[in-house]
Each structure stands twice: as C-alpha cells, then as structure tokens.
C-alpha cells in the first residue's frame, strides 16, 4: 500500500489539520459514517486512553473489513467498562471469555470461519497489557506461531488498572503502582525487568507488528488499516495513558501519550516478518522529564531530592530507542 506523503500539521502547533487533506485521506474518526464500534455510554473513566484507542482502532478495523468483523476481548478494563450486562457498548459481534485466553479464542473463531468458508469475516482480538504480556502470553505466542488469521490489539496502559493499579510486565522502570510502591531503597518499579512485547512478537516472524499511540490518530488508523489488509497473525501495540493509574490530568491524555512518543520512550515503528520496515519520526524531541512530570506515578523522581540517576536511566532508554529505530533524522 503506498501512502501519500502530506504535510498536514499547522505550523507551530501539534494539531493535525485533518480538514486540509483530501477527503479520502482523512481519518476514519472524522467521517460521518464511522461505526462508533464502541458506542458512547460505557463506563470508562474520564480521559481513558484505552476507551479512545479502542474506538479509534476498532472503527478503523471495521472500515477496513467492510464491517465484517468479530472481536474477542480479554478480561480487563475495556471488557468491564464496555459490557456490564445488559448494557453492551459494542456495535459489533463481540465476545469475552477469560483473562488469559483471548488470542486462543480468536484462533478458534478464525478456524471456525475457515471451516465454514467465511473468508469475508475478519477476526480481531484485544486486551490490555496484563492480558497480553503476562497472563495471555502463552496463548498469544501460540497464535503467532501458528500464524492464525487474527489481528491482536494490545492496549498498553502499563499496569493492571482494572484490579486497581498493580505492576505488570509492561510497567516502566521506577513507575509507582500499588505493588511497586514508593518505599524502600528502590522506590517504584525496578529498572531492567519487564517485557518488550513488540520485539517478542517480531521474533515469531509474523507478517506484521506495529506500535501506535493514541496521540497519533492518522498513524494509528493507517497501521490498523494496513494490518487488516494482511493475512496471518498481526500484532499492534497501542500506547494508551491511564489518568487514574498514572496520576495524570484526564484532560491531558493525548498530551501525555504524545510526550511518550516525542521523548523516544515509546517508539512508533512497523515490522514485517521480523524486520523493522518503517518508523514514525519524532518531530519535536523532548527530554523525558516533559513526559514524566505529567504523571504522579513518577513524582518521586523529582524529589526532594530529585533522583537524577533514575531520570538519566530513563533518558538513556529513550535515546537508545531513537538510535535503534532511527526516530530522528
């Protein structure tokens, strides 16, 4: 798929000038006929990055599949806030089974569609970072390894938010959670642990792996659309701030997400068959402090006295990402 290169940011702002584009190149979200797959009325918190990310991603997937989509959901915030019986927000065929099995359930859906000759219907599986990088990793790896025809979306808010903010394998170093509290000699989460799931997904050699941010709608929709046009196992890792868990202003969810990208802490890239093929450039590089200072979970790093070593360690991670993925040219 060739993507037209268009400069659509207004000078000196971070606002994407969607209306400056040809109608065909505008976002799915800006269209009158968007599905609202995750409809209003659900019970997510104010400023929930996951709710926004899910609507963006699933609407794009719906458009790409001509509304022929089945979605499987792992247990977690998204499942709970969208489906308290009998008030489902889902406008699409949707099923929740368990916390750790969404990829396998989706594999089963794909197998059933194959058995029934229903090539017109696509399968989406989705879960939070806990469901994806921890409890569901075995099933996810199996789905990847078999190259089942499923797009898996991970909404990464970097901890177990549904159960009340506990550490997951995706929690960043030094972050405060209720199981990595700000006490003792190494306050917050440890440095040097955790999982980089996009890299693990790439190691399976699957057709498509991408990272995306709720702060970059065009980029996110492009990746979902691209993934939906492919066959086999595909994985998109979406960075979605959680105001409650991160201690950030609900009004600043997009800003927080953008700072993660612009600092280099959350690199946006695409990989095919295990090789990075593209990345989204950082437009205005910011030091990691600009990201960290927006969130209470990193408040302890700013003292008194400031933990300059920790901040430097996070800056080193961001800088390494910038080099690894070539995020600045």
């Amino acid at each position: 798929m060739s993507t037209p290169r268009i400069k659509f940011y207004q000078t000196g702002t971070y606002t994407a000038g969607n209306r400056l584009l040809d109608e065909a190149a505008r976002t799915v979200q800006s269209r009158m006929d968007r599905m609202n797959s995750l409809n209003s009325g659900h019970r997510a918190c104010q400023g929930c990055g996951e709710a926004l990310g899910a609507r963006y991603a699933v609407d794009a997937a719906m458009r790409a599949s001509h509304n022929r989509l089945i979605a499987i959901n792992a247990t977690g915030c998204l499942e709970v806030f969208s489906s308290p019986y009998p008030e489902s927000s889902w406008q699409i065929p949707w099923m929740h089974s368990l916390f750790g099995n969404a990829p396998a359930v989706a594999s089963g859906v794909a197998a059933a569609l194959r058995a029934k000759g229903r090539g017109d219907v696509k399968v989406l599986a989705q879960g939070g970072d806990g469901a994806t990088v921890d409890i569901g990793l075995g099933c996810l790896s199996g789905m990847f390894e078999r190259n089942d025809d499923v797009l898996y979306l991970c909404y990464d808010n970097e901890a177990y938010m549904n159960t009340g903010i506990q550490r997951s394998g995706a929690t960043p170093p030094f972050a405060r959670t209720n199981t990595t509290q700000v006490v003792g000699e190494a306050p917050g989460n440890l440095l040097g642990t955790g999982k980089n799931l996009p890299r693990i997904a790439m190691a399976h050699g699957i057709p498509y792996v991408a990272t995306a941010s709720v702060a970059d709608l065009h980029d996110l929709e492009t990746k979902v659309t691209k993934a939906m046009d492919m066959q086999g196992a595909r994985y998109i890792h979406l960075h979605v701030p959680c105001p409650l868990g991160w201690g950030s202003d609900p009004a600043h969810t997009i800003r927080v997400a953008r700072m993660a990208v612009e600092s280099g802490l959350f690199p946006l890239f695409e990989a095919q068959f295990g090789t990075v093929v593209d990345r989204t450039l950082i437009r205005h590089k910011v030091p990691v402090e600009r990201y960290l200072e927006l969130q209470d979970r990193f408040k302890h790093l700013f003292g008194p006295p400031p933990n300059t070593e920790a901040i430097a360690a996070l800056q080193a991670i961001a800088d390494a990402n910038i080099v690894t993925y070539g995020l600045i040219v």
């Binding site: 099923m95 396998a104 089963g108 197998a111 059933a112 058995a115 029934k116 199996g142």
Partner: peptide, 24 residues
C-alpha cells in the same frame, strides 16, 4: 474441518470456545 495444534490444554478449550461461539 480445521485441526488446531495448540500450545496448551487451556488454549485447546479456549479455541473451541471461540469456534463454538462462531457456530462450529
């Protein structure tokens, strides 16, 4: 008929949950 070689019994039954709910 599709035969799925899965990575655990948990995955085996989970896959069937998805397949059965899809009418298989």
């Amino acid at each position: 008929c599709q035969f799925l070689n899965v990575e655990s019994e948990f995955a085996a039954l989970s896959a069937l949950i998805g397949a059965s709910a899809t009418g298989a």
